[in-house]
Simulated assay, not measured.
Amino acid sequence: MHPLISAADLRAWLARRPETVLLDCSFDLADPSAGERAYAEAHLPGARYAHLDRDLSAPKTGRNGRHPLRDRPAYAAWMGRMGVAPGVPVIAYDRQGGMFAVRAWWVLRWMGHADVALLDGGLPAWQAEGNAVTADVPAERPAPAYPDLPPAMPRIDAAQLQPRLGEVQMLDARAPERYRGEVEPLDPVAGHIPGALNRFFKDNLQPDGRFKPAEQLKREFEALIDTERPVVHMCGSGVTACHNLLAMEVAGLGRSRLYPGSWSEWCSDPSRPVAKGAAA
């Protein structure tokens, strides 16, 4: 599947493929129950809720970042509970321009599931097309645990990344003031990994919350990085980094690598280097 699907195309798609699994990934970092409350009030008919902390992340240890990846068997069991099986399409969405739904998209691709896309513009785009929402929670239709397939998305960890600083291209998806280390509302240390460049994930979006056209994204990424070289994506906790990764896929710039632990994991070890200010 293409990484994005429009609200109009999704409506037609669901008429043809009613077995499609819809995942509402709405979330709020400042209020972790807000997304679930919003889902309870209104969501796409048939959608299930995917909680960033509970479903899409492992428990925190203080050294593994704020949203560490779960192990693959845990994700496989969760996917089965959501009704995801090989060949079953999955559409993820949220209310925040894909800020959190991109994590579900990446996780499913990492688990080897090819048939997954993001609803471009999320719930607001769906409603703007005049489509219905509901408060009804669908009946469960669990499937067996998802089979162990080869990952379709590569990743890198801190131990692999640190000796390659200065060699790999890194894109940090956080807001510019956080990247520069001027403010840090979420993590104990301010700054960024030395050598990383900044691409705020919201720069991928148009004012209405939908992604920019592929050609525009391509021009913007090509102006920032050497797209012929490998790219490592990071952010605060490995979530919005997936937004830049998906945007590069939309732009036709190939798959790049995610550093899931991102800044929250990196800065938990005082022996790791820290940079501040704008990129040199």
Rank of each mutant, 00 (worst) to 15 (best):
Q160H: 01
P188N: 09
A175D: 10
P176W: 13
M111Q: 14
F201N: 02
N131T: 02
G195E: 09
M111T: 07
E129K: 10
W126F: 10
D208I: 04
D136M: 05
A190K: 12
P207H: 06
D157P: 01
G209Y: 09
G191K: 07
A196H: 07
D172L: 08
G195S: 13
L123F: 05
D203R: 06
G122I: 06
A117P: 09
D203H: 12
Q127H: 05
D208T: 09
P142T: 11
P144L: 06
P147D: 04
A135Q: 04
P124R: 03
A117C: 15
G191T: 02
G112P: 13
P213H: 14
A190V: 02
H113P: 10
E129L: 10
D148F: 01
G191Q: 05
R210Y: 01
P147L: 06
A143H: 09
V133I: 14
P150Y: 05
D172S: 11
Q169F: 07
P194R: 11
D115G: 11
P151F: 13
V183R: 07
E220S: 09
L161Y: 00
P194I: 03
R164N: 02
G166K: 08
R155F: 08
A159T: 00
G130M: 06
R180M: 11
P213D: 15
D208S: 12
D157Y: 02
N204K: 07
